[in-house]
Amino acid sequence: MSTPELVGTWIAALLTFCALSFLYKDNPFYKFAEALFVGVSAGYGAAYVVHQVFYQDVIIPLSVCFQVAGQEPSAILQVINRIVPCILGVMILSRFIPSIGWMSRWPLAFIIGYGTGFNVVYIVQTFLLPQIYGMITPLVEIVRPGEAPYEGLTWGGVMVLNTVSNLVLFVGVLSVIAYFFFSKAHTGSYGKFTRFGVWMLMLGFGATYGNTVMARMSLLIGRIQFLLYDWIEGAIGLSLPG
């Protein structure tokens, strides 16, 4: 392990312990790690924006556009595409001058208006239609002659498990939609139906919870592996069993 790597590993290991110390309570070590993390990430973010966005998406394309303006018909269009967002960005900075601070609202209005309009189509396309599309399957599935043999449980030619699954899905989706219907009070039999919807939601959330917790455990294992192999074995030089 080279000297820079050694120093880097030690710093990473110590900062890991500083961050984990928050599990006990707030302390100066955690405050130091937090301030360092926040400061470095903010600085890195600023540098990233300058280099990856401003330099690569504005400076270089504009310089190329001006070079080939006479030969490439689309260059002028590209210049407009780059300049207009720049003007909107500069308008946000007008907040620093109170007399023209009102100009900062225009780009905000543009972004929010664009985002709202764009998302209407995006959400319908990405979330709504695929779910409806996936829902439209026959409630009762039957074994048909000529098709591949079905190995699951059947009753009178009906695929029992598939049919039960489809029915649960259908009733579950309707009850959840009913729960999110705000124009009717959740009382009486309708209230019980929406209660079933809440149970369906909680079942789904429970599965998601368990799945995600295991993913977080893998992150923790990754950190422990770093401490064991990179720090204890690599940097300190102790050998571990296994």
């Binding site: 961050a19 707030d26 405050k31 993390f37 990430s41 903010a42 890195y44």
Partner: peptide, 18 residues
């Protein structure tokens, strides 16, 4: 503005809460 990084933001928020 706190920071643009996900977990750095969470760390900063945790610090503010306590």
């Amino acid at each position: 503005y706190l920071t643009g990084a996900q977990f750095a933001y969470a760390a900063g928020m945790a610090g503010i809460m306590v």
